[in-house]
């Protein structure tokens, strides 16, 4: 869509887009270019000599067991977080959509968690689940469950899934509430008159009308789980114990910033960019909406 009525001038609009364009080129385009350039080079162990190696960094990643495992781990993590956070958001939204007392208060109380920083969410759960002093750890201990996310990889992985989902429920809630509001009241009333009840009414009449929202949220949640959970994971476990919670973004940071493998980290960045481009393309293709902020 384009406007018909326009202002004249060539210099003014150029000046107006300049600030954003300058920042975009400096901090987005240039780094992305550098990532591509770095991804086809390797630096020797002493950091003295850099040479062109073609796709060697990528081939190395493709053959690396560690990278394959990180890939699978990230996939499992994304699916688990998406399913949990969306199911919880949907259930809460459906009940918050009913004509009940205190509906507005319930909504506010379910929307505010949007404001919690992912890293802060981790700090709060560390306090609850700290192996020695945590309130919930002690409770679990009394039930005979030995909970220690610092040494038990499986428990650590489960924990980052739960916290990441916990943090994302309010977002899905907001969108499902909006989605439900756009379902025509007449549809719901007609369904009631037809004698369709409860879950059946929801499944056959309302759920299909929520499909666009659901599809949009699947992509958003996937992108969130894959890319926006760095802080959450890093603050909680830094990718450990071992590599139990090392998702792809955590690995980029660990390999690049901590292990200083610049070529390998750049190659991983390029792969991640390709994944985001793919997800964004799917989203545009099917919904015309966008996911990354």
């Amino acid at each position: 869509m384009e406007r018909r009525t326009l202002f004249n001038g060539r210099l003014l609009p150029a000046v107006l887009v300049l600030p954003q364009l300058a920042i975009t080129i400096l901090f987005f385009i240039l780094p992305a270019y550098k990532a591509f350039a770095e991804s086809v080079r390797a630096t020797d162990a002493f950091g003295l000599h850099t040479s062109f190696v073609g796709f060697a960094n990528f081939l190395h990643l493709a053959r690396s067991n560690l990278y394959q495992h990180a890939m699978i781990r990230t996939g499992v993590f994304c699916v688990a977080v998406t399913v949990l956070a969306m199911a919880a958001g949907l259930v809460l939204a459906v009940f918050a959509d009913r004509a009940i007392k205190g509906r507005a208060i319930y909504r506010t109380l379910l929307i505010w968690p949007y404001a919690i920083a992912p890293a802060i969410a981790s700090v709060i759960f560390v306090f609850l689940l700290q192996p020695q002093i945590g309130l919930i750890t002690n409770l679990l201990g009394r039930l005979g469950i030995d909970f220690d996310y610092a040494t038990n990889g499986g428990q650590a992985f489960l924990l980052i899934i739960l916290i990441a989902a916990w943090k994302q429920v309010s977002y899905n809630f907001i969108f499902y509430v909006a989605g439900l509001q756009s379902v025509p009241r007449s549809v719901i009333e007609a369904a009631t008159l037809d004698g369709a009840r409860g879950f059946h009414r929801f499944r056959t009449m309302i759920w299909p009308l929520l499909t666009p929202t659901t599809f949009f949220l699947i992509i958003v949640n996937f992108v969130y789980a894959a890319f926006d959970t760095f802080a959450l994971i890093f603050a909680l476990t830094a990718g450990g114990p071992g590599t139990a919670t090392e998702t792809l973004v955590v690995k980029v940071y660990r390999d690049g910033v901590i292990n200083l493998d610049l070529g390998g980290s750049a190659a991983q960045s390029v792969i991640l960019m390709a994944i985001i481009v793919g997800l964004t393309a799917i989203q545009f293709r099917y919904t015309g909406k966008r996911a990354v902020s």
């Binding site: 975009t24 940071y253 750049a266 960045s269 991640l272 960019m273």
Partner: peptide, 24 residues
């Protein structure tokens, strides 16, 4: 061109371009 250059940044969150952005 300006529009597309800006649009592309949708796909480049900090998390995926850590090292190169830092070097810039």
């Amino acid at each position: 061109l300006a529009f597309w250059l800006i649009f592309i940044t949708l796909m480049l969150p900090v998390e995926v371009r850590i090292i190169p952005t830092y070097s810039v």
